[in-house]
């Protein structure tokens, strides 16, 4: 699962702490996190970036979900919410309880669709709110993200076969191979007995 987390630039220590808490939960959940709050250039797997560029897709469209801390709303936060509404992207809009984000002046409760969750948080429940969103409020299954680089030398005929199997699909050759291995894992009784549900 790929998540984009946005927090407007701020000099408020309390908001920066909140950004830290949100990032902690997202990293613990093993999602692929892209965020403006960590460094200038937002991280994405190279395959995803290449695929998006080939399809002329803005990178935001490739994200599975969006999390915005809109306590201190800015133009970009408004854009992300508008984008989420338009594209039906599961989105969590967080704001500190006791504040009223500027965004609400232009967004009535009626106009907020079910895939955009607007949540007032406190220090005590912030992490739980993000966990709940990831677990199911967004309606998106959490998938493992491939992080381990593995070099596999293949023959020319295998390469031709992979090209044949992935042409006219949205899959890369690596995606297709991962799918075949995951299928083998599911059907392998010996593996299931050995693994017994451990990571």
């Amino acid at each position: 699962m790929k998540v984009y987390f946005y927090g407007p630039v701020t000099n408020r220590r309390d908001l920066e702490d909140d950004y830290d808490s949100i990032r902690k939960v997202l990293k613990r959940a093993d999602v692929w996190l892209s965020s403006n709050t960590e460094r200038q250039e937002v991280d994405l797997p190279a395959e995803e970036r290449e695929r998006a560029e080939a399809l002329e897709q803005p990178l935001l469209e490739t994200m599975d979900a969006i999390v915005v801390n809109g306590t201190h709303s800015d133009q970009q936060a408004g854009y992300l919410v508008a984008f989420a509404i338009t594209t039906k992207k599961p989105t969590l809009f967080l704001y500190q309880r006791g504040t009223v984000p500027d965004l609400f002046r232009h967004l009535t409760a009626k106009a907020v669709p079910k895939w955009v969750r607007v949540v007032a948080y406190t220090d005590q429940n912030l992490e739980r709110q993000v966990e709940a969103f990831l677990a199911g409020a967004a309606g998106v299954a959490v998938k493992e993200v491939p992080r381990i680089k593995f070099t596999l030398r293949i023959t020319r005929s295998i390469e031709r076969y992979l090209a044949f199997r992935t042409q006219n699909t949205k899959l890369t050759k690596a995606d297709w191979l991962r799918q075949q291995i995951e299928r083998l894992m599911r059907d392998d009784d010996q593996w299931r007995k050995f693994d017994g549900g451990k990571e």
């Binding site: 399809l55 803005p58 469209e61 854009y79 984008f83 338009t86 594209t87 039906k88």
Partner: peptide
Amino acid sequence: GQYSSLGVKANLVN
């Protein structure tokens, strides 16, 4: 086309 009207609307928002 993968979004049909959603892709069109996303383009307008962008």
